[in-house]
Design a protein around this nucleic acid. Structure first.
Lengths: 203, 203
DNA sequence: GGATAATTATGCGGAACGGTACAAAAATAG
DNA sequence: CTATTTTTGTACCGTTCCGCATAATTATCC
């Protein structure tokens, strides 16, 4: 882990400095991708939302597919962190799951778009035409289920079903929420759905 | 149920007869929509797959959105029929579910595309921009869960969780398969997933 | 200050898009 | 056979699309 580079003076790069912050741009274009999906999101909309001109977007992120994948990975990482923060709590696993699902429902049904989950609701469709998008989405979903698995591992549930099996089921519930929210199912209905599912998963 | 119209001579309509069958066209354009999604499917591809010229498609089905919705409803109806055929069988509900999921996995992972489910994998993304697509998809998913509910109602499972609750969970499993298949998860892994979920749903 | 390097802004260009106008073709009605 | 009705085939129109070429701007290096 030795760091041999000089860090004095923060090593400001040579040319004109960027007028934007990468994470902020990704979070702005996310809104467009989340609403329109990858295919229907135009570069005009994306650059307008980002506050960057088209060539700046290209120089910083590459083409539309690369920009979309960067957005997916950024959101995926932040989502896993949020999931871990909830799932590593001290309460019983039932309560941790309840908080997680409630938070997800709030995000997924947020007005005015009811966007659902960007992975299951917008990335999945592109998988056959854009295999790299599919691979990135698959990895993120796998990391979601790993987070669930860590949560179930730190609980006093019976060893069967295994934490991994419970995690798959918890993921399926989350994906169902992400889909049905986008299709218009009211938040209250989604909440009662999760409330009835949690005891089944945690039996 | 009285049928007062004259059916003699089959009432051949006036002008030039159509050179296609509606259901066949819908099943051909389905392949394009299923692979590319709604937004990325071009009318050139759709009319080529249908074997119809563009104006014929428009005259018969309206614009691209209407054609897509007609395709969704056609597949949704046939899917519900297939689900009912399996779920109304005489075996225990666990076996019926197993057969249903096995059939779904075969379809969802079919080479070369691993298309997944057209509803959850291609319709969901369009919901914010095309509310009629979202409404149609939501209705179809609701009819899927009604079919599950009928299956659970004709079983000797305990009354709690209710057939409706079990149906929601069975639907969530089906949607998860439809997503993960499209994202590249191997069929064998999906089968072990369902095998571990069925006892949980039917506990 | 001058040279260099990176980013920003303007604008374009070829291709693909969804949708339609129009005329030829194929059937029935009388 | 003539008139009518519907479908089919060709060709096109205006728009939007993605990506880039080019030049102006803003910083550091010497």
């Amino acid at each position: 882990m030795r760091n041999g580079t000089k860090i004095e003076k923060e090593a400001r790069p040579r040319g004109r400095p960027r007028g934007f912050i990468t994470s902020e741009v990704l979070e702005r274009v996310r809104d467009v991708f989340l609403t329109k999906g990858f295919a229907a999101a135009s570069l005009d909309e994306l650059s307008a939302a980002a506050g960057l001109n088209r060539p700046s977007l290209y120089a910083a992120f590459g083409d539309k597919e690369q920009l979309y994948i960067s957005t997916l990975k950024h959101i995926g990482q932040k989502s896993v962190e949020a999931m871990d923060a909830i799932l590593s709590g001290p309460e019983p696993i039932e309560q941790r799951l309840g908080r997680l699902y409630k938070g997800a429902i709030d995000i997924y049904t947020k007005p005015p778009n009811r966007p659902g989950c960007i992975i299951v609701a917008t990335a999945t469709v592109e998988s056959p035409s854009h295999p790299r998008i599919g691979a990135a989405a698959n990895e993120i979903l796998a990391s979601f289920e790993k987070a669930f698995e860590r949560g179930f591992a730190s609980s006093d549930l019976k060893p069967a079903p295994s934490p991994a099996e419970r995690a798959s089921m918890a993921g399926a519930i989350l994906y169902a929420i992400g889909i049905r929210a986008r299709l218009g199912v009211p938040a209250a209905e989604l909440r009662t759905f999760t409330k009835s599912m949690i005891p089944v998963i945690c039996r």
